[in-house]
């Protein structure tokens, strides 16, 4: 997940007129999730309280993000966490709660 090379094509978060202030990731999980969102949305930086859809995401992209999170963290997070009111902070919590599938076929 090396976003550095792509950063020139990224949209700066400031240009989106987000409704809330930027909140920095506070844990390793939040940092990884924010990086993963940034990759999928081509927006940087991603704040942990930012809404996925407000950042320009749509339901199709959310589906790709769900699968990417499952793969990256070796878990199965609830779909509701990804599609309904998704923030990096909430997803980090969902990843923590999710059953571990590491080693499972899939």
């Amino acid at each position: 997940m090396d976003g550095g090379a792509l950063h020139e094509e990224f949209i700066a978060r400031d240009e989106l007129g987000m409704s809330g202030p930027y909140v920095e990731p506070r844990s390793e999980t939040e940092r990884r999730l924010a990086a993963l969102w940034a990759q999928h949305l081509a927006v940087a930086p991603v704040g942990v309280e930012d809404d996925f859809f407000e950042l320009g995401g749509d339901s199709l992209l959310a589906a790709e993000v769900q699968v990417a999170i499952d793969t990256e963290f070796g878990v199965e997070i609830e779909a509701a966490a990804v599609f309904l009111a998704p923030t990096v902070a909430a997803l980090a919590e969902a990843v923590r709660r999710a059953p571990d599938t590491a080693g499972a076929d899939g």
Binding site: A62, A63, Q66, E78, A79, V82, F83, L84, G106
Partner: peptide
């Protein structure tokens, strides 16, 4: 849209298994 996508996401995960 989002509720339906979430619903089908769970359904599809189940169906993959």
């Amino acid at each position: 849209h989002r509720e339906l996508f979430a619903y089908f996401a769970d359904l599809v995960r189940e169906r993959r298994r």
